[in-house]
C-alpha cells in the first residue's frame, strides 16, 4: 500500500480534530508571520464508515455539527470523511469542501474580487493568489494538528481530551 493510500486516516483525523478544536477552543488559529485565520464548519459533513458494510452518514443543511445525529456518530467513534468549511483571514473568506482522505480542496469558492482591481488581468492575478493561499493556509492548519498528533504521548494528552469530548 502506498503512503498516500495508507495515511488517508490522518486526513480524516485532522478533519475530526478541526471540529473538536473549533468547539472547545474556538476556530481561531495563529499560523505565525502575523497570519491569524478563523475556521468554522458550514452546512455539510460526512462521516467515514467504521467498516465497509456500514451505512454512510451524510448530514447537510442548517448546522449539521450541532445535530443529535452528529453527536451520536461521534459517540460511536466515527471520524469525519468530508466537510464544508469556511475560512476567513482579514476581509478574505473562502468556502470549500475538504476531503479528509486526500486533503483535497473541492468546490472552492474564492473571496469576492477586489472592486478596485483594474481590469481582468489584475483580477486573474488576485484569484490565482487566493487559490494558492487557501492551499497554503490549510497546510499550515494541518501542521498545527500534526504537531499534536505526531507526538508519542498523544494518547495521554490531546488524544484523551478529544476522546472525552467525543463521549460528551
Amino acid at each position: 500500500m502506498s503512503d498516500a493510500a495508507s495515511h488517508g486516516f490522518l486526513g480524516e483525523e485532522f478533519l475530526t480534530w478541526l471540529w473538536f478544536r473549533t468547539e472547545t477552543e474556538g476556530g481561531e488559529f495563529d499560523l505565525g508571520e502575523g497570519r491569524v485565520v478563523g475556521l468554522s464548519f458550514d452546512d455539510y459533513i460526512e462521516f467515514a464508515p467504521l467498516d465497509d458494510d456500514e451505512t454512510e452518514h451524510t448530514l447537510k443543511k442548517g448546522i449539521p455539527t450541532r445535530s443529535s445525529e452528529a453527536r451520536a456518530a461521534l459517540k460511536s467513534g466515527h471520524r469525519l470523511r468530508r466537510a464544508r468549511l469556511v475560512l476567513g483571514m482579514g476581509d478574505l473568506i473562502w468556502l470549500f469542501t475538504l476531503d479528509g482522505a486526500t486533503l483535497g480542496l473541492r468546490s472552492v469558492k474564492l473571496p469576492d474580487d477586489d472592486e478596485e482591481a483594474e481590469g481582468p488581468e489584475e483580477v486573474s492575478r488576485e484569484r490565482a493568489v487566493n487559490f494558492l493561499l487557501i492551499h497554503e493556509l490549510m497546510g499550515k492548519v494541518y501542521r498545527e494538528f500534526l504537531r499534536l498528533r505526531l507526538r508519542r504521548d498523544y494518547r495521554a494528552n490531546a488524544g484523551a481530551e478529544q476522546a472525552r469530548w467525543m463521549a460528551g
Binding site: 495515511h7 488517508g8 494541518y142 500534526l146 498528533r149
Partner: peptide
C-alpha cells in the same frame, strides 16, 4: 495528500520519524 503534505510541513525530526509508524485512532 496527508503523508506527502506532512513530509513537507517543516515538522521536527521526531515527528517525521513517527509519521511512518503512526496508526489510526480507534475511537
Amino acid at each position: 495528500e496527508p503523508h506527502s503534505l506532512a513530509q513537507r510541513s517543516g515538522l521536527d525530526r521526531d515527528a517525521l520519524a513517527y509519521l511512518d509508524e503512526v496508526a489510526p485512532v480507534r475511537w
